[in-house]
């Protein structure tokens, strides 16, 4: 290759190298110093990231997806999580892993003629599921709706007056445990999936927190942990499931799981037990003798946003 001609050389030197007219070696030194300074400043700027190694153990960082954990792995993970709960919340908790009962498919129905909007289900949900106490968190939202309209635009979730109001009816909404769940489809890392008994669960230790599922859900059923949940030690529910009500880590998604740590043991969901009106009916859709099947057969039942094709396992009905 030819050397650049003398002309272009001097021109380009003048133009490109007025780095304060320094000789080459000095200039390189200055550049090195600049780079070092820049790196130091960068290190200083991202210093708060030190919280990651402080809060995330190597074991947690390397933990595999729930479905890839062996029974031994699970034991280790659960022990670690129990220790962390003790350390961070001062609570003695037991984390277990209830598996779906073969042949069972859970369904839930709400009698809108009975629901009076008292909100006990939300309180029970919050306590049962170790929700962040700093905010009014629960997996259930109760809409106060105008009689004569099913349009949610005329609904209100933030009512603060005695209930029931004469011209209103009340409609609790929580995860509809869809058979065609958009939240599961969109998750880029398979951190959420549908179990054999129909419950859509989240592996809180696998979720990357992109919140695509929250955008995809048509029922506002998903919640994000915007900060580390705060729960006083004496309020922590110690009976915890890995895929359900254990205390969730900051930066991950969570959702209603039909209290699987209770229902897979034959108990009822906390929201149902707390409901003073008897509006809630829960059971096995595969059991012809169950209350829920009786309701589906004998009542005029509807699901929310049926036109979206999400196929909910959550139903609504009126008495008359």
């Amino acid at each position: 290759m030819d050397e650049p001609s003398e002309d272009t050389k001097s021109a380009s030197v003048e133009e490109l190298l007025p780095i304060l007219g320094q000789p080459s070696s000095r200039r390189t030194m200055l550049k090195g110093a600049g780079a070092a300074l820049g790196l130091a400043a960068f290190g200083g700027a991202v210093w708060p990231l030190i919280s990651i190694p402080e809060n995330v153990s190597v074991d947690e960082f390397l933990q595999q997806h729930y479905k890839e954990l062996s029974d031994q792995d699970k034991e280790k993970v659960f022990t670690r999580l129990e220790e962390e709960a003790k350390e961070d919340y001062g609570a003695d908790v037991t984390i277990s892993d209830q598996l779906p009962i073969p042949g069972v498919k859970f369904g839930y129905a709400i009698n809108l003629s009975k629901c009076n909007g008292n909100g006990k289900c939300m309180e029970a949900c919050s306590e049962e599921n170790n929700h962040h106490r700093g905010v009014d968190q629960s997996y259930i939202r109760v809409l106060e709706m105008q009689k004569g309209s099913m349009n949610m635009e005329h609904g209100n979730t933030t009512y603060d007056h005695t209930v029931p109001q004469d011209d209103k009816f009340y409609m609790p909404v929580q995860c509809q445990q869809c058979d065609n769940p958009p939240c599961v489809t969109v998750c880029p890392v398979e951190a959420t999936w549908k179990e054999d008994d129909g419950i859509v669960v989240v592996d809180y230790n696998w979720c990357i927190g992109c919140r695509y599922c929250e955008a995809a859900c048509p029922y506002h059923a998903r919640r994000f942990n915007w900060e580390q949940p705060e729960i006083p030690a004496e309020e922590v529910n110690p009976d915890q499931g890995y895929l359900s009500n254990r205390i969730r880590p900051q930066g991950t998604m969570e959702k209603c799981h039909f209290c699987l740590h209770r229902t897979r043991e034959g108990r009822m969901p906390a929201c149902l037990e707390a409901c003073p009106t008897g509006a809630r009916v829960f059971g096995d859709l595969n059991d012809p003798e169950s209350d829920i099947v009786w309701i589906l057969k004998n009542k005029r039942v509807f699901v929310l946003k049926e036109e979206l094709g999400t196929k909910p396992s959550f139903f609504y009905f009126f008495d008359s």
């Binding site: 969109v186 998750c187 890392v189 951190a191 979720c207 990357i208 695509y212 930066g251």
Partner: peptide
Amino acid sequence: ADLGRPERFWHMIPGIGRFNWPMSMLT
């Protein structure tokens, strides 16, 4: 910047993570 848990980014790497392709448009 939008991720809640950026250190779990590797969960998205095919092979070592679980890459929900072709279902998720994000993948």
